[in-house]
């Protein structure tokens, strides 16, 4: 028997069968987690966002309009909650009085020089991605890692395809410039 479509599960839920909702959670929990994780960075925050997303889905399924597609809708909720989490975190960080400790450099662990350089270069790239403005980072993540078509991204983020292409291009340019600056310093 073929698995039920998203919309069939939504209908099940609307008819009072909570199993429809449960199946949707199981179907999308990993995707939601990784979207959130890539945006917010930490596991704990992403884990929290996953639960919030599905709580909102639970409350909103009654009014969900099927034309946008269930996954697009869930993706949009995830993106919004992730960006909110980043804003909240920034405010908290700004208000926090104690300084964040820099991780101490633990020296050469006996790795060959080329491996160290490789790790350092990778760390620079990760930092470059991490330093992108939240929305630009999101566009980069969606396009580069998730390979979501621009048309789908446009629906999720309510942006034009042209604007998203420009955003993706500028995100890559920023990564490129950061890496160049770090390697030259």
């Amino acid at each position: 028997m073929a698995p039920k479509t998203d919309l069939e599960l939504v209908d099940d839920f609307r008819r009072g069968h909570v199993e429809g909702f449960n199946e949707l959670v199981r179907r999308y929990q990993e995707k939601v987690y990784w979207i959130a994780r890539r945006v917010v960075g930490s596991h704990d925050d992403a884990d929290d966002i996953v639960q919030d997303v599905f709580v909102r889905v639970y409350r909103g399924l009654k009014d969900f309009r099927s034309e946008s597609g269930f996954y697009t809708w869930v993706y949009r909720i995830t993106v919004n909650l992730s960006l909110n989490a980043i804003r909240t975190k920034r405010v908290k960080d700004f208000l926090r009085l104690d300084d964040v400790e820099e991780p101490a450099y633990d020296g050469n662990d006996g790795q060959p020089d080329s491996a160290i350089l490789q790790d350092e270069y990778k760390a620079v790239l990760e930092r470059a991605i991490d330093r992108l403005p939240p929305k630009q980072k999101l566009v980069f993540m969606m396009r580069y890692f998730d390979e979501i078509p621009y048309e789908e991204m446009a629906k999720i983020l309510s942006k034009s395809v042209g604007g998203l292409k420009a955003n993706y291009f500028h995100a890559l340019k920023k990564i490129q410039e950061y890496v160049r600056r770090e390697l030259n310093s």
Partner: peptide, 15 residues
């Protein structure tokens, strides 16, 4: 650049 970025794909997610 895009070739280099392959090294961080997927992002380092240890948890």
């Amino acid at each position: 650049l895009l070739m280099d970025l392959e090294t961080v794909k997927p992002p380092s997610l240890s948890h």
